[in-house]
Design a protein around this nucleic acid. Structure first.
Length: 264
DNA sequence: ATGACCTAACTTTTAGGA
């Protein structure tokens, strides 16, 4: 089973690239972030015509996450919103149990973690609180001892090697010690960084800023991650970054990241 | 050395991104 995460930076702007990606890469499950539209505006008919079932948690203008699964896979036990703060109205978390005839089920989450900048604003504590809620929920899910893939835009640069210019991020919410500690705490719960487990090389990036010629200069960061429970990590065959999509016309500033799991 | 983007919104500027 191929599971991909992709921050599309507006699903409406990115629809041609999204449909082309579904056709070419044929992921079994696709986690989308930054839809930037409400549920009613999601291009559901086009995605369904491509052979995918869709579950969304949209929001006007900002945030928004979705899960797509390719037939004959189906989704059940849909969870919208991350537990732990009933007052949180930002659309940043959707989860489903993905099942099919030829594969053991996998619980998949699409996560859009808060950016957290500027760090002297309420946005940073909101980010850290979201990470704590995610850790608590990740721990609770682990009790089932089943395959889980927590995928998304974490807005965390885990290590120095995950940035072309780490000094530029030293005091940024994406690289501050508290953010990185919270990411490590997720790993300490028993989750595996799927891409890192398959590819130890420096220079693996998933985001290049639109500004300052970051893409042509390959000044990127790795912030989109797939975290695997032990039962999912046991099935991990390969992981890869679909970097070429950043070179298309009108690209997202993020590219897809994919893990391939055995049928189990 | 320097500047350099993109998206959505009751749009002619701002907020948010990272």
């Amino acid at each position: 089973m191929r599971i991909t995460t992709w921050n599309v930076n507006s699903v409406k702007q990115r629809l041609p690239h999204l449909l082309a990606f579904l056709d070419e890469a044929r992921p079994d499950a696709l986690c989308l972030q930054e839809l930037k539209c409400q549920d009613a505006a999601f291009p559901r008919a086009e995605v369904e015509a491509a052979g995918y079932a869709v579950e969304t948690l949209g929001q006007k203008a900002y945030n928004g996450v979705a899960l797509l699964v390719r037939a004959p896979l189906t989704m059940s036990e849909i969870r919208r919103g991350l537990p732990g703060d009933a007052a949180d109205e930002q659309a940043r978390y959707i989860e489903a149990l993905v099942s099919g005839p030829d594969t053991a089920p996998v619980r998949v989450a699409s996560i859009y973690l808060p950016n957290g900048n500027p760090v002297d604003s309420p946005k940073y504590p909101y980010k850290l609180a979201f990470l704590e809620r995610l850790q608590r929920h990740a721990r609770a899910l682990m009790a089932d001892e089943k395959a889980i893939v927590l995928a998304g835009d974490y807005n965390v640069i885990p290590e120095l090697a995950d940035a072309a210019d780490p000094e530029a991020w030293r005091s940024d919410a994406l690289f501050r010690p508290d953010s990185r500690m919270a990411f490590r705490a997720l790993l300490a719960e028993g989750y595996t960084d799927g891409l890192r487990a398959c590819d130890p090389r420096d220079g693996l990036y998933t985001f290049w800023d639109y500004q300052a010629g970051c893409w042509p200069r390959n000044v990127g960061i790795r912030i989109d991650h797939l975290l695997l429970s032990p039962q999912a990590a046991d099935r991990l065959i390969s992981a890869s970054v679909q970097k070429h999509l950043r070179g298309l016309d009108k690209p997202s500033d993020h590219v897809p990241v994919t893990v391939e799991l055995s049928a189990g």
